[in-house]
Computed example of a mutant assay.
Amino acid sequence: MKLSAFAKIAAIGGIAALTLTSCAANEGGSASGSDDSAATSSLSGELVGAGASSQGSAQEVWVAGFQTANPDVTVNYEPSGSGAGRETFQQGASAFAGSDRAFKAEEISAGPFDGCATGDIVEFPAYISPIAVIFNVEGVDSLKLDAPTVAKIFSGAITSWNDPAIADQNPDVELPEGNITAVHRSDDSGTTGNFTEYLAAAAADDWTAGSIETWPTEFGGEGAQGTSGVVSAVKNGSGTIGYADASQAGDLGTVDIKVGEDYVPYSPEAAAAIVDASSLEEGRTEGDLAITLDRTSTEDGVYPIVLVSYLIGCAEYEDAANAELVKSYFSYIVSEEGQSAAQESAGNAPISEDLRGQVQTAIDSIS
């Protein structure tokens, strides 16, 4: 099943509890911000979530908007990382999780999900963003690299910035002789999973570790905790290179990735294009909208290192109060208002109307 045209969209981290409180809107979770809507909201209680730090900026905005619409609700989201978020959710310590990958089918089968009344879960894309390859080399703002070269840099096979594999693709760039310090996530990370999935698909001969969320120690490099940790290590180092959600790239140098015969810079539109060229995984339940990304696509304008970050909840909750709050919060997040708010704050690509319809159907099935 093909997803609809994201390309038509013209637009477009440490561990901490993100808790914001405000006032105003309706029971369905729509955050209009009006006094009238505030008076109609009957939702109350505390909603706890944890997971992907890549969603951190977006979650701040979503929490604020939802609590403005529902002043008697407190939402706590801890950006502890995708792996920690999935574990917390499975243990029933949080009502929902954010994750930079969907649960694998075998993980769902193995379970258990302690806060759920059944073994089924609901998960769907809520935050779509390119993963930028960021670097800090004095005097260099942009580089062009193909997948094998990126793989060799992060596996330790290329150690100098003026290596011919880099220089040949950047003949107009004056590259230093200095050593490369490759920075990776030290924590179990969905961002790492997405990044290594790209390397495994597009540079299999040079990246032998496969698609993994825990960085292989044999490849060395410098580890840093969370998205913010990687960005900080690259920014404060010299001759450093790393990977992070593109919204956090700031003024660091970035890499244009070779796709077919062209080099494509990251952008929300290019990230949307790779999702548009991909399909939903087969063999999943109707509420489990996991995407199989085509990392080797050569279509024009596609940026293949993309993060599709999911929201995950129970198909049926042991606690009915959690079901009501999760349904309302998820509905606000995927609404046009919620997606537009995140776009403005975090620079992600809003989900398409067609995908929104599929996602809302999955959310509505939560009980």
Score class of each variant (00 low, 15 high):
residue 210 G to H: 10
residue 210 G to W: 10
residue 210 G to N: 10
residue 211 S to T: 14
residue 211 S to R: 15
residue 213 E to K: 12
residue 213 E to A: 15
residue 214 T to M: 05
residue 215 W to R: 00
residue 218 E to K: 12
residue 218 E to Q: 11
residue 218 E to S: 14
residue 219 F to T: 01
residue 220 G to E: 04
residue 220 G to N: 02
residue 220 G to K: 04
residue 221 G to C: 11
residue 221 G to T: 10
residue 221 G to N: 09
residue 222 E to C: 04
residue 224 A to W: 00
residue 225 Q to E: 13
residue 227 T to P: 00
residue 227 T to N: 07
residue 227 T to W: 00
residue 228 S to T: 07
residue 228 S to D: 13
residue 229 G to K: 02
residue 229 G to E: 06
residue 230 V to A: 06
residue 230 V to M: 08
residue 230 V to W: 03
residue 230 V to C: 05
residue 231 V to M: 09
residue 232 S to P: 04
residue 233 A to G: 03
residue 235 K to W: 04
residue 235 K to Y: 06
residue 235 K to I: 01
residue 235 K to T: 14
residue 236 N to Q: 14
residue 236 N to H: 08
residue 238 S to N: 07
residue 239 G to F: 04
residue 240 T to V: 04
residue 241 I to L: 11
residue 242 G to Q: 11
residue 243 Y to N: 05
residue 243 Y to S: 06
residue 243 Y to F: 15
residue 246 A to D: 14
residue 247 S to Q: 14
residue 247 S to E: 13
residue 249 A to C: 09
residue 249 A to N: 09
residue 249 A to T: 13
residue 252 L to A: 01
residue 253 G to D: 10
residue 253 G to Q: 09
residue 254 T to L: 06
residue 255 V to I: 12
residue 255 V to Y: 03
residue 257 I to D: 11
residue 257 I to E: 05
